[in-house]
Write a protein that binds this DNA or RNA. Structure first.
Length: 242
DNA sequence: CCATTAATTTAGT
DNA sequence: ACTAAATTAATGG
């Protein structure tokens, strides 16, 4: 994985286009609320950039100077524990902001972010973003909604993870993808088995073993990274009972 | 630019 | 941990 120079990218992109946020087809729910002049402020203090699959967008420990808005693609939020073990906290879908925790909290990024697919993002100056939150209550409300929804999701996932055995965890992960990430019953895993295991906190071997077992029992069909759910009811049951 | 091969990564046991 | 398969990078034309 290479950390590519954001600087070069930003500078090279600069001359090409001068997009305005009001033209953007991929606005967040929050940004859709902003008044034209507010959008204009964001336009003048933001920059669109793209990353390739595997690129690291943010390193844990770095300072936050920009909010990153994910326009397209998937990103993983993770930490690397001492002992080299990676823990994936969540998969981030498009149309969400990264680094909001740092806006209201610490100013230091507590997590790392890496692109799972090719990705388009917008860097938005943190001061502008901050000001809009203070000045526009409706905007702030939408931001709050998304932060809360997120934290509920994750908190719930971690709570159940700590109680469940491996079967339940795998079932949870499958349901997480089908319900929250892709919202369909057939999807392609955006990452390796190792990362799948890192998401649910089990060894790679166990994860593949259980996936295979689920397939044999007719709960799923698996072709490489493509998973199709065959028996949703049973998966839910396994998820509930662990 | 494309094709072939070498090297690295991934998956399954 | 090891092997096979797959993906990605390097090379040469």
């Amino acid at each position: 994985m290479q950390v590519r120079s954001i600087y070069n990218q930003v500078i090279s992109d600069f001359s090409k286009t001068f997009n305005t946020c009001s033209d953007c087809k991929d606005k967040s729910c929050a940004a859709a609320i902003l008044r034209p002049e507010e959008l204009e402020q964001i336009s003048q203090n933001s920059k669109e950039t793209s990353f390739r699959k595997g690129d690291i967008l943010v390193q844990a420990g770095s300072m936050t100077s920009n909010i990153i808005y994910l326009k397209s693609g998937l990103v993983k939020e993770f930490v690397v524990n001492p002992g080299d073990r990676e823990q994936i906290l969540q998969i981030v879908k498009k149309y969400t902001y990264l680094g909001l925790q740092s806006l209201f909290g610490d100013r230091v990024n507590h997590y790392s972010y890496a692109a799972l697919t090719d990705v388009k993002v917008c860097y938005i100056d943190i001061n502008i973003f901050n000001r809009l939150v203070r000045e526009n209550g409706n905007f702030a409300y939408e931001i709050l909604v998304s932060v809360s929804r997120d934290s509920l999701n994750n908190f719930h996932r971690f709570m159940s993870q700590s109680q469940k055995k491996i079967y339940g965890r795998v079932a949870d992960a499958i349901l997480y993808f089908t319900r929250i990430i892709f919202e369909q019953e057939s999807f392609e895993l955006p990452f390796t088995r190792q990362e799948f295991a890192d998401l649910i906190g089990v060894s790679r071997e166990s994860a593949t073993r259980v996936l295979l077992k689920f397939q044999q029992e007719g709960l799923l069909s698996i072709h490489g990274r493509t998973i199709t759910i065959q028996n949703m009811g049973m998966l839910e049951k396994i998820s509930r009972t662990g």
